[in-house]
Nucleic acid binder design. Structure first.
Length: 277
DNA sequence: ATATGGCCCTGGTTGC
DNA sequence: TGCAACCAGGGCCATA
C-alpha cells in the first residue's frame, strides 16, 4: 500500500517506539514463507539483538540491529521490511487480539510486541547478517536527495512513458502510483510522454515537484485511502490534497477540466488533459 | 538492455 | 440481500 511518505511515517513511528529495545523471541507464520529470508534464519538472526534504529530506504523499512548477544566489536545486522500493498507494523501489548493475517511477531524485552500484518501478502521480510551480507541500499536513487544531473540521466533515451518510468524502483526508489500522478500534475507533464523526450526544463520541474509533494505528504503523515494505518493507528491526511489521484471525472483544481483516467503499464493513471502537456 | 504482460493475494466497493 | 465483477498505494518473473 504505502509509498515513500507512508513508509517514512511508519518507520519514524516504529523508531520512536522500539529504539533501544531488545528482541527476545520471535514467531513466524508457518503456513507460508512470505519472506526473502527463510523464517528459521530470520528467527535465529533476530533473537537476542538490540534495535539500534529504524529508518526508511526507498519503500523499505530498515531495522538496524546490534551484534548478536551484545558481543562488543562484532558486526550488527539488519531486518528489512517491505509492506507491499497492505502490510502494517504494529507495536502492541502481547495480550492484544491477534489481527487476521499476522505473519510475524517479535517479543521485546520491555514487554511489548512488534507485529507484521499483511492480508494480501505482497510484503517481504529479509534478514541480513552484516558479518556476511552487504548492508541494504535501495534498488535505485532517493527522490528526496537526487540532484538535477543525476535525475536527468535516469530518463535519458528511454522510450517508456514517464509515468511507468517513475514507478520503476531501479531508477527512483519510493515513488508509487499516487505520487507519480501527483508530481506529474504539479510539473504539468502528460503521463504518457516518453521519458527520453522530456526537456531539461520539464525534468527539473518534475524533480522539484516530486520533492515538494513527497515532503509535504510526509508532513501530513502520508495518504490514507482504505487500510493504511501508521504506527500510531492514526491516519494520514495527504489524500485530502490529491489533485488528480482517484479524482476521475472531478474538476481540475486549477482549470476545472474533468480529470481523466487511463491505464499505463497496467496501472490506473490520472491527469488533467488541459494542464498537463 | 529495455519494455510488456501475467501473476501473486485478500478485501472493499460497485452494480446488477 | 446476494453475488459477480472490478479495483487497489507493489514488484517479480517470463517473454519478446
Amino acid at each position: 500500500m504505502p509509498e515513500l511518505p507512508e513508509v517514512e511515517t511508519v518507520a519514524r513511528g516504529v523508531h520512536d517506539r522500539v529504539r533501544g529495545e531488545r528482541i527476545l523471541e520471535t514467531w513466524f507464520a508457518s503456513h507460508r514463507e512470505p519472506f526473502k529470508t527463510p523464517a528459521a534464519r530470520q528467527a535465529r538472526g533476530l533473537e537476542g539483538r538490540n534495535i539500534l534504529a529504524v529508518h526508511r530506504t526507498g519503500k523499505h523499512i530498515v531495522f538496524e540491529l546490534g551484534p548478536a548477544n551484545d558481543q562488543p566489536g562484532e558486526p550488527g545486522a539488519q531486518w528489512i521490511v517491505h509492506l507491499g500493498m497492505t502490510g502494517r507494523l504494529l507495536v502492541t501489548s502481547p495480550d492484544a487480539p491477534l489481527a487476521a493475517h499476522t505473519h510475524a511477531r517479535l517479543s521485546l524485552a520491555g514487554g511489548r510486541e512488534l507485529r507484521f500484518v499483511d492480508p494480501r501478502r505482497f510484503g517481504r521480510l529479509e534478514f541480513r547478517d552484516l558479518a556476511r551480507d552487504r548492508g541494504f541500499a535501495g534498488p535505485g536513487a532517493e527522490p528526496l536527495t537526487i540532484g538535477p544531473d543525476e535525475f536527468a540521466a535516469l530518463f535519458r533515451r528511454r522510450r517508456i512513458a514517464i509515468k511507468p518510468a517513475l514507478l520503476n524502483q531501479k531508477l527512483l526508489s519510493g515513488v508509487g502510483n499516487i505520487y507519480a500522478d501527483e508530481s506529474l500534475f504539479r510539473a504539468r507533464i502528460r503521463p504518457r510522454k516518453a521519458a527520453g523526450r522530456l526537456t531539461r526544463a520539464e525534468l527539473e520541474r518534475l524533480r522539484q515537484a516530486l520533492r515538494q509533494v513527497l515532503k509535504h505528504a510526509i508532513r501530513l503523515g502520508g495518504s490514507s485511502i482504505s487500510d493504511y494505518v501508521n504506527a500510531d493507528g492514526a491516519k494520514g491526511f495527504f489524500q485530502l490534497e490529491h489533485c488528480v489521484y482517484q479524482r476521475t471525472g472531478e474538476p481540475c483544481r486549477t482549470c476545472g477540466t474533468s480529470i481523466r483516467r487511463i491505464v499505463l503499464g497496467g496501472r490506473s493513471t490520472h491527469y488533467c488533459p488541459h494542464c498537463q502537456k
